[in-house]
Amino acid sequence: MERKIRVVMAKLGLDIHWRGVYLVSQFLKDSGMEVIYLGNKFPEQIVEAAVEEDADVIGLSSLGGSHLTLGPKVVRLLKERGLDHIKVFMGGVMAPKDARSLEEEHGIAKVYLPDTPMQVIIDGIRSTVALA
């Protein structure tokens, strides 16, 4: 049997908005992925969990304004531990220029802004993992 894509999802830091992350988690689950939702966590804890869970993907949700500080930190920590194969996806509310910067300069595989259909997110994660 094909291995299910394993996704560790988290709310970044103090961000209280759980509506979106819950929904994305649920839709990914329904599409056949293995989703482990951590709740609100900081970068170190998220990376730790990703290791423990043998994750293919980390999903970070940020509607609280810490996307440019805590997001890249997760990627840095992964690099330091030689875990570059884990792809980091982000979503939430942020300036479109910040989203571009996260993708182009900070090693985030893809950022999904509000109004993105769930199927786009599901397909995006699938195709990225398939290529890896």
């Binding site: 830091g13 103090l14 900081f42 304004g65 810490s66 500080t69 805590l70």
Partner: peptide, 15 residues
């Protein structure tokens, strides 16, 4: 949390 608590990182004055 205070602005200089570690938990506040990246969020001070943000929203």
């Amino acid at each position: 949390y205070n602005s200089d608590d570690p938990e506040a990182e990246g969020n001070v004055g943000a929203c």
